[in-house]
Design a protein around this nucleic acid. Structure first.
Lengths: 194, 194
DNA sequence: CATTAGTTAGTTAATATACACTAACTTTTT
DNA sequence: AAAAAGTTAGTGTATATTAACTAACTAATG
């Protein structure tokens, strides 16, 4: 990650805003320029293409993900509690950043741009890998049930989290994600504990 | 559902094909016409707009859904077995019809076209309502665990199914959906049984 | 210190391409 | 002969991007 200029950061921020509020389809150079208050071509002084802007957006998400993953591992909980904290944190993060769900959970968007869809896959994979690791540890230390494989448990956990996030997104972010998140976490706790 | 002409059915079929193989973004009048072997304007002899074509596609999915739902309810299994059958059937159906996942799981696509996004929501809601019903019955007849609400169980079941379908779709339909479906079903069986 | 050269960030106008859709005419079917 | 289903040639709109130019600031040089 190179250092970004103020203007570049601003472009990324506004892009994320547009994606959150109006969807990735409306992230056009025209809309971007009008919200920035500069002309379309001026944007090209800061990013060489629209694709590079999207890459920068994904990079920022990736970076956020990384920070969370690092944060989590170092705070002396059991792996079971650890897992719950991670889920809570992910929901919190998405709640504060709707664009992230809009970008990462709408895969269709990037179907032809292999670099972009590769990045999305990458973020998804690192997330599920992260889940699988925690669950594996929990199975070893006896805090998470072992009669179901860690991969399947990861699918179930991540899948249901993704699902409530999607419903939230489809509702135009009107549904209370924190509330449905809490309910889900309670249920998952019961189902996953050893 | 009005009666459709042969040509209209063909247009719907080819649309579904294009969506499956190249994504909904590539469902353009140009691509459609070239695969149909007729000119673009000729298509307008059969559908008054592209939107009407998409509506017809969604209608066909809705119809398929309905057929499955009806089929399922009448075959003297316990509700638990019933649920498993439904999941199996959904995975089978999607496996044979990738376009359905491409359309139904890419809600973003229709965000501005309220009629279309309404139809997608409708299909999703009827699916989850269907799950919730079966699970509710299972909790009454004692074949499904009752310590977790039926709504939460539905979210977990549907969410994890959606998740493996998404991974399958992101892989370009290369991952073996039947296989990951089987694994998931086995795990869900263990977790959901009373 | 003043001039020269270069950089940065912006402008307006234009370009190429893709899209859904239409008008007017022709062929095919009944 | 009339209706249905097709054609070619075009429209208007949107999109990302480029071209040509400018104002304001910064660094280098005589």
């Amino acid at each position: 990650m190179q250092e970004l200029t103020i203007r570049q950061k601003q472009i990324i921020d506004i892009s994320i805003n547009i994606i959150s509020e109006r969807g990735i389809r409306n992230l056009t150079m025209k809309n971007l320029s009008s919200e920035l208050g500069i002309s379309e071509p001026a944007i090209y002084r800061h990013f060489e293409s629209k694709q590079k802007i999207l890459i920068a957006v994904l990079d920022s998400f990736k970076h956020q993900n990384k920070l969370i993953n690092e944060n989590i591992q170092n705070n002396g909980e059991t792996s079971f509690q650890n897992l719950i904290s991670v889920i809570e944190m992910i929901i919190k993060k998405l709640n504060n950043n709707p664009a992230m769900s809009a970008v990462i959970f709408s895969e269709e968007t990037f179907q032809n741009q292999s670099e972009l869809s590769g990045m999305v896959m990458n973020i998804m994979n690192s997330t599920i890998g992260f889940f699988t690791n925690i669950i594996g540890r929990g199975q070893k230390d006896g805090s998470i049930r072992s009669d179901i494989g860690k991969d399947e448990l990861s699918v179930i956990v991540l899948g249901s989290v993704r699902h409530i996030v999607t419903v939230w997104r489809l509702s135009g972010f009107k549904v209370d994600l924190n509330k449905s998140g809490e309910k889900l976490i309670k249920s998952l706790e019961v189902m996953i504990a050893a």
